[in-house]
């Protein structure tokens, strides 16, 4: 029992070293910080930008109400959910399939390492990257929002960060699963983004009936940032469903890898 745990730790350390060496742990958070900072800044200067660059007739008066700080934060989360998610999935898409195609996976898996610790170490690294980037970007956005629009309660920020982080974790788990299932990294990224978009769309179209899907987590995160979650029991179901699916995807990925690690 202890030895398998030690093995897992060693594998996780290897993955973390890889994250640091490839500078992913540096540039992905930087991109998130940039996204997080640009949102409040561009919203703050929107009237100015319209005035200077927009093609507006002289004397036309546009009144854009100053948004609340919490609304700005919710919009930042939306940015993270599109561009940020895209970057994260593209970074994670080759985590397993790349190693299998280059032969590194079969090199590692001939050693007495449980397949599960291989998958679990990849998963830990991806999740660490996602949570680190999200926290860095969101905190930067919070600071800027506080500066430009007004303070937002720390509890709201923390709550929406946790809920949204769970959505990103789910997406990362999907990436890992598809990266194991499919040989091509591009196909893995495409399937992940497609599934995530479909889940969000379904949960967005029928929030009452399908609100328990993981896709509704992002809108629960916006709700947490702006006010409170309206439907707590539905949120509970969404949490349970997300955790179940994540566990299933991880197990499935290990199972697939055990069955077909010899293909290459």
């Amino acid at each position: 029992m202890t030895s398998s745990f030690t093995r897992l730790l060693v594998m996780v350390q290897k993955e973390l070293l890889e994250l640091v060496r490839s500078l992913k742990l540096l540039w992905v958070p930087l991109v998130f910080v940039l996204l997080g900072v640009m949102q409040p800044a561009s919203m703050y200067y929107m009237p100015l930008i319209l005035e200077k660059a927009g093609n507006i007739t002289e004397g036309a008066v546009i009144e854009i109400p100053q948004p609340l700080g919490s609304e700005v934060l919710a919009q930042t989360l939306q940015q993270f959910g599109t561009l940020g998610l895209l970057v994260l999935v593209l970074v994670g898409m080759s985590s397993v399939s790349g190693e299998r195609n280059s032969g590194a996976a079969s090199l590692i898996l001939v050693k007495p390492i449980a397949v599960f610790s291989f998958t679990a170490s990849k998963w830990t690294a991806l999740l660490l990257l996602a949570w680190g980037s999200l926290s860095a970007g969101y905190l930067a956005s919070w600071y800027y929002t506080g500066l430009l629009f007004g303070d937002v309660q720390a509890s709201k920020v923390l709550g929406s960060l946790l809920v949204f982080g769970l959505w990103l974790s789910f997406a990362m788990t999907l990436t890992l699963f598809f990266s194991t299932l499919l040989r091509s990294s591009a196909a893995a990224a495409f399937s992940t983004l497609g599934t995530a978009a479909a889940l969000s769309l379904l949960a967005g179209l029928l929030p009452k009936k399908l609100g328990w899907l993981p896709g509704s987590l992002s809108s629960f995160a916006y709700q947490t940032a702006v006010s409170d979650i309206a439907n707590v029991s539905l949120f509970g179901w969404a949490l349970a469903c997300t955790f179940t699916l994540m566990a299933a995807a991880l197990t499935g990925a290990s199972w697939l890898l055990r069955r077909s690690s010899a293909i290459d």
């Binding site: 500078l23 540039w27 930087l30 910080v33 940039l34 900072v37 703050y44 800027y144 430009l148």
Partner: peptide, 19 residues
């Protein structure tokens, strides 16, 4: 504007340099 824009430009510059 500068104190607000400066961090954005700095981060972009850092990304360009790393790349």
């Amino acid at each position: 504007i500068l104190p607000i824009i400066a961090p954005i430009l700095t981060i972009q510059l850092v990304l360009v340099i790393i790349a």
